[in-house]
Nucleic acid binder design. Structure first.
Length: 206
DNA sequence: TTATCGATGGTA
DNA sequence: ACCATCGATAAA
């Protein structure tokens, strides 16, 4: 498939809110060695349809609130890199670091739409499901650079998406900041996560 | 369709 | 003792 070049570092050198909105519609490209035909070797492509912005130490929902720890090393690292963490003991969550080294900004990718290279039908709505579908693990991907052609990169959107916003999911513990409209999703996609589908008005069809 | 609950393990 | 989740199950 004709995938674009990786988004440049400058794309990610902005506030997480800006990057989160801009990433809706972008293509996530996962290359797996030794899988698929030689011409498009193991290239799995998915369209990002839902994201959330996490905005550093002063954001009570952001992991950066604990400061620099072994886990948040990548989160506080340079922009345009992956921050992958384990949640609930069994799911990996994929984030892209933003803004500037030391700021602790990142965008959580919460749902993607399968485009190419998926063998069987798999669900990719939900942060834990998409990492499983794309084989993105913390052991392999935490801290890697996303701005070069490699096992994981992101290409610019092809068309403009209709982006809607809402409060972030599962962060009620954070207090008032939990109400901030820092979730961004494609209002026309059937592959957004469950809470987003409800807002769009699509029924619970799966 | 919504609600509830258990799995599971790193992290603070 | 939490927790940026998911899948199974029950109830309606």
């Amino acid at each position: 498939m004709n995938v674009g070049a990786p988004l440049p570092r400058s794309f990610f050198e902005r506030d997480a809110r800006v990057v989160a909105r801009a990433l809706v519609g972008a293509h996530l490209i996962r290359r797996i060695r030794g899988r698929g035909r030689k011409s498009e070797q193991g290239e799995v492509v998915a369209r990002i349809v839902e994201t959330e912005a996490y905005r550093g130490p002063r954001d009570a929902a952001c992991h950066a609130r604990f400061g620099l720890t072994p886990r948040t090393r990548a989160l506080f690292g340079p922009p345009g890199h992956a921050y992958v963490f384990l949640i609930y003991g069994m799911y990996d969550c994929f984030n892209v670091t933003c803004l500037e080294e030391g700021k602790g900004h990142a965008v959580l990718v919460r749902a993607v739409e399968p485009i190419a290279g998926f063998g069987k039908r798999v669900r990719t709505d939900g942060p834990g499901r998409l990492t499983r579908a794309l084989a993105i693990t913390r052991a392999e991907f935490d801290g890697i650079d996303l701005c070069s052609v490699g096992s994981l990169s992101i290409a610019a959107p092809r068309e403009r998406s209709k982006v809607e916003t809402s409060a972030r999911v599962g962060v009620a513990y954070a207090g008032a900041i939990a109400e901030a409209p820092w979730r961004f999703f494609d209002a026309r996609s059937a592959h957004v996560s469950r809470p987003s589908r409800r807002m769009i008005g699509l029924g619970e069809t799966r």
